[in-house]
Every structure is written in C-alpha cells, then in structure tokens.
Design a protein around this nucleic acid. Sequence first.
DNA 1: GGCTCCCGGGG
DNA 2: GTGTACGGGAGCC
Length: 818
Amino acid sequence: MVEKIQFFPLDATYKVQDGKAVINLYGRASDGRQLSILDSKFEPYFYVIPKDGANISDKLEKIRVESEIEVSFVTKAEIVMKKFLGKEVLAIKVYTNLPSSVPVIREAIRQWESISSIHEYDIPFVRRYFIDKNIVPLVLHQATGEFTSQKSRSAVFRADSIEQAGSDTLHSPRILAFDIETYSPFDVAIDAEKNPIIMLSFYGENFRKVFVWKKFKTNIDYIEFVSSETELIEKFKEVIDAYKPDILTGYFSDGFDLPYIKTRADKYKIKLDIGLDYSELRVKSGRETTVAINGITHLDVFKFIKKVIGGTLETYSYDLNAVATELLGEKKHDVSLAELPDIWDNSNEKLERFCEYNLHDSLLTYNLAVKMLPTIIEMVKIVGIPIYDVNRMGFSQLVEWYIMKQAPQFNEIAPNKPYYDEVQQRRLNTYQGAFVYEPKPGLYKDIVVFDFRSLYPTILGSHNIGHDTIDCKCCEDSAKAAPDESDRHWFCAKRKGFIPILIEDLITRRMRIKEIIKEEHDEKFTFLDARQNSLKLLANSFYGYLGFFGARWYSIECARSVTAWGRFYIRKVIDRAQKEGFFVLYSDTDSVFLTLDGKSKNDAGSFAESINLDLPGLMELDYEGFYPSGIFVSAKLGPFGAKKKYALMSEQGTLKIKGFETVRRNWSFIAKDVQENVLGIILRENDTMKALEYVKNIVSDLRNKKVPIERVVIHTQLQKDILDYAAKGPHVAVAQRLKNKGRDISPGTIIKYVVTQGNDIIRNRSKLPEEVREGDYDADYYINNQVIPAVERIFNVLGYKKEDLLETKEQTKLEGFF
DNA sequence: GGCTCCCGGGG
DNA sequence: GTGTACGGGAGCC
C-alpha cells in the first residue's frame, strides 16, 4: 500500500543489493518511531572534462573492469554543460554500476590522451546523496512509498520519492549519554587488552543507571549489580536497544570508551550488533579513531567542543572537568581515580562513591551534549551534512563541504584535492599576514576600541575576491586599485564571483538573524543565537580555507589579497585617527585602540561614522567599547610592547585580561593570584603604591613562611620517559625519585612538587607536596622565580624595578639578593 | 631562532 | 568507504 510518511533524517548508509546501491536513510518519524528509509533510485557518478570538447562518451560507455570480487562498468555517459572555476566547460557525467566502481573506472581512464581532467570521483556516496537530493539532515521530510518487512530494529519503508516538508527541525532528539570506568593502574599506560571495564553508567531523559560487577551495600537505586564484565557488556547493548536513542554520546568516546568496549567485547566474542540494521559498531582506527553505529548518531562531545567552539572558551585544557566547569558551572566529583584499582581489589565498601562519580560523568556529558546541540543542529543545517560528520570536521572541512553543497546550484564542478607533491608545494607558500601596530608599554586612560565587523569575510565579499574573478580580462584597468605593490591582483567589477556570493549570503543571513534577535527576545533565542554564531564561525573560516594547503578551492593569491586589503583598511583607520588628534595606542589585524587625548566619546563615535561612509559593501567599523583604564605590558624585557599582552578595565569595573600566562598550570597558585590582584588594584583603584605594598606583603609572607604549602605547589607534566630527558628539570628529578620508590612513572603523569629550602641545586630540593612540612618551602625561589616574574613587567611599565618590589618595610637594603 | 616530535582526551 | 586527517607547545640543535 502506497503511503506518505514524515520524518527527520539523522544519517544514512548504503549497501549493495542485487548489484545496485541502496541508500538507507535513518531518521525519527514525526510520530516518534525510529525509521529506516530505503531509496534505490540514486546512481553513482563522476565528471570527466575532455580535451577540446572531444566526444568520448561512446568510448566511456564501453568501459568494463573485472576483478575477483566484482565487476565495475559505466552505465551511462551524458554530455553536460558545466562551469569549472567560473569558466564554461563541456563535461561528461559518467554513471557507474556501483559506488565502488567510481575509483576503479577513474583509474582505468586516467591516462587517456583525450581527457583533460577527472572530477568528483572521491565524494562519499552518502554525502553525494544528501547534496544531490537536497536532503538536509534534521529537517522534516516526506517520503512516498510503502512499508516493507526486513530484519531491523526499526520500521523499514521503501521510498519512491523523498522531499523536504517545511522547515520543522528535530530540536529535541533522544539523547543517551554513557561513560565507563576501567581497572587501570595509574602509573602505566591504559591497556584495554589487559584490564576490564568495571563500571558503566548511562544518563538520559528520566533515566540513570550504573552497572558494576562487584557487590557492596548501598541504598542508591540507580546502581545495578551484574555478575561479570560480560554481563556488563550485554547490559550496554540492552540499554541502547531499549532506550532507542537518536544520539549516543560520550566524552572522548571516539578515542576511549567505545574502542575500549569493542576490545573487551571482542575478547569475549560478544557481537556489538547495536546498529538499527543489526550491524556491528564500527571502530575505524587511523590517525584519529572514530566509532560509528548504523542508525544511531554517535556524538563525541569532546571532539565537537575542541574543534568547533574551543576557540571561544577560556579554558586551556579540554578535560571534562575544565569544560563542564566553564560551560555548565559544574565540576566532576572529586574522587581519587588512582585509588580505584586497589579499592576494587580490596575494599568493595568504598565503591559506592565511584559509582556516583561514574554516573555524574554521564550526567555532565549529557548536559554538555544538550548545551552544544543548538550549535550542532545549526551547523548541520547550514552545511547540509549529518551530525556524525559535522562532529568530526574541522573548520576547513566544514567550509569545503559547505561549498561542495552549494556548487551544483551554481553548476560548478568541484576542483580536486591536491596530491602529495602539490601539497608540499603549497606548504612552501607563505604570505604576509596582518598589520600590527605595537603598543608602547604603559598605563593608559580613556581607551576606545574599534574593530571591523568580520573583517576578512567582508573583504572577500566587498572586493569580490575569488577564483573566477581574479585578474579578469574585462577589468584590467582596475589593477592599480590593488593595495599591495608586490603582489598586484584585481578582481572583476562586473560579475560577482562564486565564493563572494556564498560569503555575502552567510553574512547577510547572519545580519538578518541578529536583527530578529534584537526585536523579539523569545524562546527561539537559543536557536537563533546558535545559528548566527554558526554562520559567523563559517564565514570567518573562508579566508583561512583559501590559504589552507589541503583545500580544493585553494588560492594563495586570493588569500594574499585578503590580508593586503586588511592591512590597507586598518592603516587607513590609524592614519585618519591620528590626523583627527586621537592617540593610537595599539592595533592588531582588525582592531584599533585609541585614547581620547582630550577628545570626547562623541568625537570617537563620529570618527567611526565618517570612516564607515568610505567603506565599500558590507564592511563596517564597529565601536567595541570604552575602557577608563588599561595597561599594556612588554612581553620581552625591552623597549617594545607586547603584541597581545594587556589588561583593560570596563566602566563596570570588570577586567579583560589578554595574553598574561595566568592560566598555565606550571605556575603556582600564589603567582597567579598575585598577578591578578596587582592588575585589579592598578586598574580599578589606580593605586600603584597599594599594589606595590601588596606585593611586598606577599614577599614578606613568603619570607616569614606564612604561605600554606598548597599555594606553592607547581604542576608539570612529564612529557616522555624519564631516561629520555637530557636536561633533568625539577619535575624530572621528582619523577625519578617516585620511580625509585617503586611507583611506575610514565609519560603523561603530572608531577606536583614544591621547592624546599637548602643549599643544593633546585632539582635536588624539589619534593612532593606531602613530603613537605608547612613552612619548609624555599622562600627565595618562590619570590624570585614565581611571584616576581608574574608581576615584574607590570611594575616595569609603572617605572619600578624588581628591586623595588623586594624592599620590605623593615629592610631597605637587601642581603643575599642575586 | 628554526625544526621536529609528540600529545591531546580517556582510566 | 567514490576519503582523510590537526595544531600547538616543548624539546633539541
């Protein structure tokens, strides 16, 4: 019976049936069921551009390659008019019997004299399907066809046609988060072959569970005892089968949890056939391991956060604790995992806390997935490929697939990926980057900051920079307009290029959304905000993509022109500001820091307005903010200011700190604290003497041993095996002693140490915090190597030297300072 | 100062 | 799966 069903596609696979590829689209039906939709009406193909329009279709149609496993042949060769980098070309669209035939046929015809080039032979079949059929994952679609019986965990529907059905989006997919704990001694590398999984937790909507295979007394209802590790793995399968998630999520589950589970399952010969089609979970190891399940989207939140939003986070580390703290305001439970193996062996009664810890990690992962979802969904909708892929792509890939998705609508054939030699060649191409106006170190008042809104994207659009517009015959006259004398290129003034159209579309879509957000601040805000942010992230990545050696649409000339125009505009702003009597303090790439120098904030406003009158297209100089005070610090001890080392205070009194190494873990707490407090006193209270006194007090506290040991602990990670260190720093020496005591120390271990008093060299005086009694730290070391370096440059700017910081109230001359 | 190596995350 | 990886800091000469 032919019927229509509506569903939200999540992902797809294909399989070969009766010598033909059948797409299996997985999705959630609008009535809530999980669905598999079969579509056998899509054929694999690629493009050939013949030399001088030679008609080789007949010859192509005869190609047939036989191997032991399968036969590859061309089913059809159509002549089509396409464009390649803007130029009209005659091309042949070559259809093959199977997706896997494409590379085979391509190889067979590669050397043909009559062929100029071959294209789009390396597009994964499923992705080709999403692009060509214009299916946007997560958006409501309608399929016409009929249900069929087939072995599957979901209903199966054979479709004759599929089309989009409005703009409804699957905003609340069913998410299931999970996490495992393993028996892993902390001082050796994690070994899945050797050590079992001992706990497994799940967290979902109205669902929480921890499985553990040792018993103990507990009142916690979500803990369930199982008899063995094999039963625990069976539970893993059962829970997923029963919960029916759209998304299974973990934290670093691509690299850890799922491969680990797979290794253990293999050991016991348990089939992890959790795919909706009963296929097994697929672990693909390579440079980066990935794990996929047919019909269930595996989301590794860690990977998404690191690749896509990491740049916007404060945190330096992407471990679950740091990320959850920043994004959710919640930490991991504080248990000592290093003790778990011993507790597992000897003290069952202490396992309850670890089960709670295990569940909490799943909870954090779940909440992170929910928090990331709007951004992920919008990225998926913009780029047009499934969550699974978006999750694993970096920016250049996202840009590339966005262009790939748009290309057919412009009738463009995609350029090929560069071969090894070409990549090597491209890597050598460097070019001049942004303009930086170095600040003179100092304390400044009344700072106004302007920046160009999306500088590089707007330059790309406004100057029509692209492969199909560069050095066009029709606009040779405008060559003199190029801002860079050494590298003069011009761009067509008559017709808009492919890349500029795409980028202006992204920019204007974003502007429209921002307008809507301004007007109606409703429940849609989260999604609209995520969408404008995704559009921004994507637009900002185009310039980098053009200069990226692996790009299909690579153009070093275009990338160079973008930075050249960038330098041109920022210099123009600087010149005009100086002419109008502002003091230019600092400028980098797209921003300018001025001081009012007697002028008013209004003057600054009208300055920006006048600049904007002269800017082309979508370019715009924005007022970023006003800061009553700010300090610019020298990065090196010399006459030059640091590029990006400054702190600003807003009118509300909050500090904006850039470039100070406050967050590095190899600084002690005391040093980090002192730095922050000094900046605060100077900028908020404008009281240098108070800051000076504050530092002197800390110095004297250190001398008088009033500082608790925990505040002088230094953390350093061991990067390699102890024996491999040529230069034995303090952390290496401490690690060596730990090893001598019988602890197996391996690379990656974080060594905590305190430098204690004595006359020996530093590494011999570095001890574990627990070995050090209160007051036994080396005050001079912490004063001279931690606290003073953290604030020295700040005080240099204010005209004080190191010596001034060290003078205490009691003593004006210092003994033993060298 | 450049070039190479290795790590990240997870337990 | 019609594929393939990155970027930054530390260490080394």
